[in-house]
Design a protein around this nucleic acid. Structure first.
Lengths: 197, 197, 197, 197
DNA sequence: CATGAATGAGACTTCATTCAT
DNA sequence: TATGAATGAAGTCTCATTCAT
């Protein structure tokens, strides 16, 4: 109970992130998580009712933080371009800080339309909707063009970022530090400025 | 052996599409595919060495058609905006024609970084690269702005389309006919024109 | 498919009888049944959805035969004393013919008020009720005394037989052939004649 | 250590009665008992070496009281019919006073030929034997007929009472007060007088 | 080609018991 | 005494794959 005592629940969650990222949710075993965490098999079930609940917990913990970040960007009265940049920046920093966790969230949840994506579709949509509201407001303010549906624009924005993360995930390589900053700029430039032509 | 005889291999593949789309690759059983196809359990193994091979076949069949379509767009000497529209149109028409198949490809392969995505990463990248070459050529021709990396632009383009498909997939509803056409236009408009701001 | 082919489902059921009788339902493992039957583990689940379903099947198979025998006794127009003797005889012969099966039915089902007894209470009651009807009819006919509740008399009759079986089961020894016949007589004598006093 | 202090061991035993009665010995968990008792998980193991030991304790506590009651009936010089009635009365009153405890003893021990019944078969038989001695003595005194084996008569007597309890247990309903008295009479009437016919 | 019974490794989950505090 | 986290063996069930017919 001392402050120094390790929080085994946290240890298990962190181990699960590494294992899910490395092997994937469906391909790993609960014993892999226990081994990675350095705890006994049964302790995983002392803290979580099932393997699925571990992934749910990881997703919800992080996604709620992201929803808060998006909400904060939405509330701020900065120009819409900077609001979008703040969101892109938050997601990309999340990846920089813990690529395994973001890999798990993207690969095992937000893109898993048959399993966890379906479970958490409401939460996922909340993010899209908030982004869409930022776009819609900018359209009403005459800052963004109005002939593109705001929900569609939100899909473009979020889809681009997720594709970037997917690219990094597939590469399997550490991302150079400067690329993170560069991509933030390019995301906004792409969405707001377009390619021309 | 007669020409009129049903091609059981094809029947199995088509059944697998429906089953994978409905239940997901990891959650369905080989017997589900056999049942859906109306064939005996063991016959699946007469035509395919494993459950994975069925998905591989489905993916490669369709992806090669798509690579050909992209190559054709690349070869044509139409303006880059129209080349991109042709590609977007092809993918969206693919979904319109067989949403289950596209769902399987997107959900179970191109977004499955731990399993089939890894297996087919080379094929997947070929599409991105071809799109990137179209962008790069347009940049050399001065049609597209050059301060955005062509590979990044390709991610934006492909990521947007995949996000649109994902949205349709998650919705679980049939897409209104007019939306298909509308989206083709919006994709190109979004990528080329941007939102402004 | 030939007539000579062993019916593996039957083999598994028969093996389960021996294993349940020897080790008890809760204490045996499905693998024990498979081993006893000489089949692979998974085959048990090819024929039965669960371990419980095996016991259910064994019980229902036998109990339905017994209900038929009781119904036949009830339908006959022999004196009630002989009707009761026919029923006692049938149950005791069932034990003589396959003591393991009767042990399983008595120990794991009809006396298991928290598990299978509850599941099959309806079927079990059908037997008691049929016996009660025989007694009630005899009371209406003035053959049996009427100041004892017919349902209570049925409990006495069935409870006595089950107690005899339980005694044999607990003893763990083979029952001498002559004891079977003797007991049939004593059961009826006890129920109809009483001890006196 | 004060006299007013609750006896936690007793609290655990009483809780175990309720849990065993409700869920059955095999289907309940030790933590269920701890929860029902309102004590910590590990405390159960402070007082009892195992889950089985709890049931053993419950059974032996009560069964020894019953053996004493039977012995007292046996020692008394009342007519055998009244001796039997005293025993029936004791068992039925035991059920009236604590139906959960009697349910546990009957269902989990005296009828569990593969598990606890086997463990306690000696104790169980002592009861049957004592009843048999009462019958045998009555036969020697010429009060009971002698052509029925005394051990068999004991089985009939005890089997009838246990069947009545089983019936009440299966019904799951509270037993009307007058039924207790009525049954005591009917048991003796049935065993001594029989149905006639 | 076609069938579906047969195989058995493997995974999740449960839970009695131990033990550090 | 009292707590409840920690342990890990054991068991049920699943299902991809094989194979005899």
């Amino acid at each position: 109970m001392s402050a120094a005592a390790v929080d085994k629940r946290r240890v298990i969650l962190d181990a699960a992130v590494r294992v899910f990222a490395r092997q994937g949710f469906h391909t790993c075993r609960v014993s892999d998580i226990a081994d990675e965490a350095g705890v006994a098999y049964g302790l995983v079930y002392h803290y979580f009712p099932s393997k699925e609940a571990i992934l749910d917990t990881l997703f919800l913990e992080r996604w709620d933080v992201m929803l808060a970040a998006i909400a904060e960007a939405e509330r701020s009265d900065r120009p819409p371009r900077e609001q979008l940049r703040a969101i892109a920046s938050f997601i990309i920093e999340s990846y920089r800080h813990d690529p395994d966790l973001m890999k798990v969230i993207v690969v095992e949840v937000t893109r898993a339309a048959n399993t966890f994506g379906r479970t958490h579709v409401g939460k996922i949509m909340q993010a899209h909707e908030a982004i869409g509201r930022i776009v819609a407001q900018a359209q009403r303010d005459g800052v963004f063009r109005s002939d593109i549906d705001s929900a569609f624009a939100a899909q473009a924005f979020y889809g681009l970022i997720e594709q970037v993360l997917t690219h990094w995930i597939f590469s399997g390589l550490p991302v150079p530090a400067e690329e993170f900053e560069h991509v933030k700029t390019e995301v906004v430039e792409m969405i707001c400025g377009g390619l021309g032509g």
